[in-house]
Design a protein around this nucleic acid. Structure first.
Lengths: 338, 338
DNA sequence: CACAGTAGTGTGAGCGTTCACATCGTATCA
DNA sequence: TGATACGATGTGAACGCTCACACTACTGTG
């Protein structure tokens, strides 16, 4: 296990000190840009650093400073547009502020993802931003209570002690969709729910239900499935066959909505004349379906930015003892499918 | 900067030792599953660990063992299907072997991505897998020479000292496509190239050119653009207007190919009768276009697995001094567009 | 019954870095 | 000219952990 041939030692601060004929502390001062170093010395040290190819060891530094200048980011799947965009946004924000973002994908099988989060902590991150997915509010609360660093949850609106929750305003989104559909004369709405991630899904469902309920005389039916195209197609078919008078379908996400598009094609229903279809997420391919998909878009980059700032200020002033919720306004991107 | 309110100290091995009334070494032995601990002691220590919520500090451990059980993974965009799949695959492989995968997105602006890689190193990773994108072979060679750990490059076939290169066999892929097109009676082929990432692009272009050149009397035209739908559409339009007799288009990736699909629609050309279209990548939405897209798929998970194993064996036996290339067979997924 | 072997445990040192403090030399001022 | 200040540098300790070794008590053996 030791002395692995593949692992070669990198030069340390001591090597640089020897090379430049100064003490390690002087090298440290040069590296951390401390002002009180004589220009000539600084130059000599910088040359030594360049010749040896020295890079300070972040772990050793973190050990003594108790700060790693590193944040963790966890979500189940970076290929997902919203997760991926947010990840990218946080990465950019982090770099601008001298932080490094350690990204990891949550492993469901490892205690719903808690294991992955714990491992992330052992890496010494100064804060964690995460999409909860399968993790319950109780999981998050427990994690925030024991992790010893700021925690930001993105994508679920929940007031959890010591946690900043950043989420899209589901009620506003639901209202945008339902108002739009009613505006188009649609009065019998079907919903394609996601059978995974009960808590996020539930918020969206409750919001839609409430928005529909407040529209006068709008009917509602629901079917759930795995949030992919094929399963969306099946769920939509089931729904349309069970309630043939439906004149609008709302997909939990664009992928399911695209499945609904296919289902309408299968059943020879015209979109949007017979059935209007709306999704969530604003994935690029939604612009290319036939007809292009009307969808709810959220400002992933803006949320990423807010998440980063929340971590930073959590570090400065401590986390909000009673939790804090930041809601983001959704936007309805109206295209041909509605 | 110190004593930040947001950062609370976690218990250390000493706290656990005190709680269980043993020495730190005994706690260490319990944590690392050393056999020579009396069952009763082990139990007492485990209880102390549970009460205190202790987790070993990976950085401190790595500092002394010179092994972090951590690999780095870098690519420009995890939302990209191939990058994302490979990332996921490596993550799974890593977890199975007790490793943690630190994922990061390469920042072009930071010295073409070299800065990001250097930062990754300072985190103490035991090895790095990366998609080179903008990094040249020379960049990679230099990185491998100075990083002191195994390096695996995915997605470009290059024999670089100390680097294992894992890539799809571009010649095989090009042959699959061209043979297929010729088989369908297509003799005038247009290529939509990617204007980014010169080196990867070049390999694909050379392979296609060569495959086309070996087909008797097949004509060729090329246009380049940013590898997205809108730009693919523009490039395809340019190409089809410049060479109206083209009867097939090959997109550098599925996204460009989908742009080509739109261009054909614009120009009222039937696909595949007038123009056949083939892409690369096998993105899920390719199955939903009209007609569905014929495409080259590569085994991302298999490559991820190989990459992980290459890192492990690089650690055991040292990196290959002269470099090593592992080629993966592509598969042609024939759908309606050809 | 002395000797070795071994299971179980503890101790000092050190991984690479920064912090707090000490030391030195030189310039500044009354 | 002596006191004072400050700029430039170096030294010991510590961060949390594991390694190598030392130590103690058994157990078994001839």
């Amino acid at each position: 296990m030791k002395g692995r041939p593949g692992r070669v030692d990198r030069p340390t601060i001591i090597d640089v000190a020897r090379e430049a004929d100064v003490s390690r502390q002087t090298v440290s001062r040069v590296v951390t840009n401390h002002p009180r170093v004589a220009p000539a010395t600084r130059l000599r040290v910088e040359e030594a650093i360049a010749t040896l190819g020295y890079r300070p060891n972040r772990m050793a530094r973190a050990l003594v400073t108790r700060t790693s200048l590193t944040f963790g980011f966890a979500a189940i799947d970076m290929r997902d547009l919203h997760f991926g965009d947010t990840c990218l946004g946080m990465q950019v924000a982090a770099r601008e502020h001298g932080y490094f973002l350690v990204v990891t994908e949550l492993d469901f099988d490892d205690d719903r993802g808690m294991g992955t989060l714990e491992t992330l902590l052992t890496l010494g991150v100064d804060g964690v931003a995460l999409f909860p997915s399968l993790l319950s509010d109780a999981d998050i609360e427990q994690f925030a209570a024991t992790c010893g660093c700021p925690v930001v949850m993105i994508g679920r609106e929940s007031k959890i002690p010591n946690v900043v929750s950043i989420a899209m305003d589901e009620n506003a989104a639901a209202a945008l969709i339902v108002d739009h559909l009613v505006d188009r004369g649609k009065m019998r709405i079907g919903i394609l729910m996601n059978e995974m991630f009960p808590e996020v899904v539930h918020q969206r469902y409750v919001a839609l239900r409430q928005a529909i309920g407040s529209g006068t005389g709008v009917a509602l039916d629901v079917e759930a499935g795995y949030p992919k195209i094929a399963e969306g197609r099946i769920a939509a078919t089931t729904l349309l066959q069970r309630s043939p008078d439906l004149d609008a379908l709302i997909g939990f996400n664009d992928t399911m909505a695209m499945g609904a598009l296919l289902a309408c094609d299968d059943l020879e229903l015209r979109v949007p004349q017979d059935v209007a279809i709306v999704g969530y997420d604003g994935i690029p391919f939604g612009a290319l379906t036939n007809p292009p998909l009307t969808t709810i878009v959220q400002d992933s980059i803006g949320m990423a930015d807010a998440a980063f700032r929340a971590l930073l200020s959590g570090l400065e002033d401590g986390p909000p003892p009673e939790g804090e919720v930041m809601l983001w306004e959704p936007e309805l991107l109206i295209r041909g499918s509605s």
